[in-house]
Design a binder for these strands. Structure first.
Lengths: 341, 341
DNA sequence: CGAAAATCTGCAATCGTTTGCAATTTGCCC
DNA sequence: GGGCAAATTGCAAACGATTGCAGATTTTCG
């Protein structure tokens, strides 16, 4: 420690700096932490030296001692459909906003993709690492049970996803069922009679969207929804959609897609078959991603307010870290009418 | 420590576990680290106990002692165009692949968005935090000089971006100039005579793309490129593009967009003006993002192999961490012909 | 059987920072 | 100037894991 370099003492530790300033390490620590216990002049001197030598206290050591790291973990569980989510526009936008919010609150963000099937222990591992002060889980995937279990004993966790009656873990998410209702109402208003749901209805959020749409179909006395399951990755989904359209040609006049991404693919497939949209088939998406404005014709969709979601996640998490008990936050989605329905 | 809970001793530290196993903390540490110095039976016993109590060593303490954290920092400098990049599909896809690769190599990923204008010190702060073993910077933005300066004294850093003659920092990126050449050649082959470059040519990568296109225009004896500067965020870009098209109506017959995202917006704007593509105006994008397949008509573009880029970044970084000196890695982009040129 | 070699295990220092407590200095008032 | 309170500072013990070294145990072999 304290070797010469560039003709200037290199100061790596608070002790180095203390020696330079002629005080004890404790005082340096207090000065840099901005505590009121140090003399103003002493502090100024120490701060100047720190700046001059580009010194920054080691966060690992600080974290260890204070039992708080200033890092929030963000876990993205990937379902069977591995490759998808991390490049999915919706999740990525959410992640971007999360990064903003967390930075703003002075936290760093540790990102971890997890493949629950391959590693049943993912959540405990993340939490138990001692590296994070709290965790945000983006998407429940098929891990609802696991998350519930952990929520029992670990408070600082908030999850993006769907809310179920009586669940224990704190969740932030859209009212998917309501979104589904809005979508179906619009399809019907635009003239649809036989509605199909496009997407993997085993995913819990999607199931809720579908259920909302089914509610409305039933209320209007229409035939039950047809489900057209797909994967989320564009490559596979394209083929699957084409197959579905071929199989149900002429028998479906309204499609509610689980996602704008799927809706856009579906639109391309419909065009390829020469089906008029919204003339012969009406189409509604979900999310209101940028792509929704760019399709031809532009997509009618259900908007989720991603920024508000991120704010909610961070806000609730910080309150839980502070020890508060918090309710889940359910955001209302909103119908955006463009031209496909 | 070692209090009762759920009728089972809670073991938080390696010392707790040692007490339970009737050995010393040192032995537990060695057993859990999989060192060969512990007796097979002792190790088995310790491992069983650890599993049973869900014990995981504290990474902060471990990191402090070993002077290595197992975390790689990923910094995303945001230029003036703040909101954009983190939700930009290209960067996010790259981030996804990075997460994959790093996880695969046993590293965690710490994500930090930085606004260099507001915080001139961003890179040193990140590096000096003691929280990361190395750093990947995604995009040079306008921070070329700052990065160069830091590269001088800090080895474990790799940057995604453009390569300049004689630069010091290790970079991975596409050969943007070559990409620009490919784009221009295609535009010309498709019949363009007056080519425009769409995008912010002050960004270093974009400038290189533009330069490549300009090379080709000159070689073919065509008039110099017209530059149509835009922001990257879709909202602002839309208007700007519309204005540009209005200003240059009929005088441009080929557009090279810095990005597929811009190209898609441009296509929409062209459609709105009733301009035939590729009949009256040819259009080539860059990146080959998913949206390139979905526009109408689908976009001719220059593909960057994002996965290869991520692999390169991680590979080079790990080698630098290990102390190797490494060359930069320049990947060849590739023309993908679809229907807009 | 005994000694040397090989294998395990424990001890205690260490990583760099924070913080309770005690010691010291300074300021203030009579 | 003395005495007391307030303001600063130093001391040393944490935080939890790792690891060089030395002591203890077992194995090997002549």
């Amino acid at each position: 420690m304290g070797e010469e370099r560039h003709g200037r003492t290199v100061v790596r530790t608070i002790t180095d700096l203390a020696r330079l300033a002629g005080v004890s390490p404790g005082t340096v620590s207090r000065a840099l932490a901005g505590k009121s216990l140090v003399n103003a002049k002493t502090r100024a001197r120490i701060e100047a030296l720190a700046r001059e030598h580009g010194f920054r206290p080691n966060q690992m050591a600080s974290g260890l001692r204070r039992q708080r790291t200033g890092v929030i973990g963000v876990a993205i569980p990937l379902g069977h459909d591995t490759r998808q989510q991390i490049s999915d526009t919706f999740f990525m936008t959410l992640l971007g906003h999360l990064a903003d919010e967390l930075t703003h609150e002075g936290y760093d963000l540790m990102l971890r993709r997890v493949v629950p099937d391959a590693d049943g222990d993912w959540l405990d591992r993340f939490i138990g690492s001692g590296m994070i002060d709290g965790v945000i889980v983006i998407g429940q995937s098929d891990q609802f049970a696991r998350i519930e279990e952990v929520a029992e004993g670990y408070r600082p966790m908030v999850v993006w996803g769907n809310h179920q009656e009586g669940q224990r873990h704190c969740v932030v998410g859209s009212d998917n069922r309501l979104g589904g209702r809005l979508a179906a109402e619009r399809l019907i208003a635009a003239g649809a009679r036989q509605i199909a749901f496009l997407g993997d209805a085993t995913a819990i959020e999607f199931a809720a969207r579908r259920a909302g749409a089914a509610d409305v179909a039933a209320r209007f006395g229409l035939p039950p929804l047809v489900t057209l399951p797909t994967h989320l990755s564009p490559e596979r989904a394209s083929e699957e959609i084409a197959a579905h359209l071929a199989a149900h040609a002429g028998r479906i006049d309204g499609i509610f897609a689980a996602t704008d991404t799927l809706a856009a693919l579906c639109l391309t497939a419909l065009r390829a078959r020469g089906v008029a949209v919204p003339g012969a088939v009406r189409l509604v998406g979900f999310d209101d991603l940028p792509i929704a404005r760019q399709t031809v014709p532009p997509l009618t969709t259900i908007r989720q307010d991603i920024a508000a979601g991120a704010r909610g996640l961070v806000d609730l998490l910080l309150r839980r870290i502070a020890g508060e008990a918090t309710e889940s936050l359910i955001l209302p989605p909103e119908l955006v009418v463009r031209e496909t329905a």
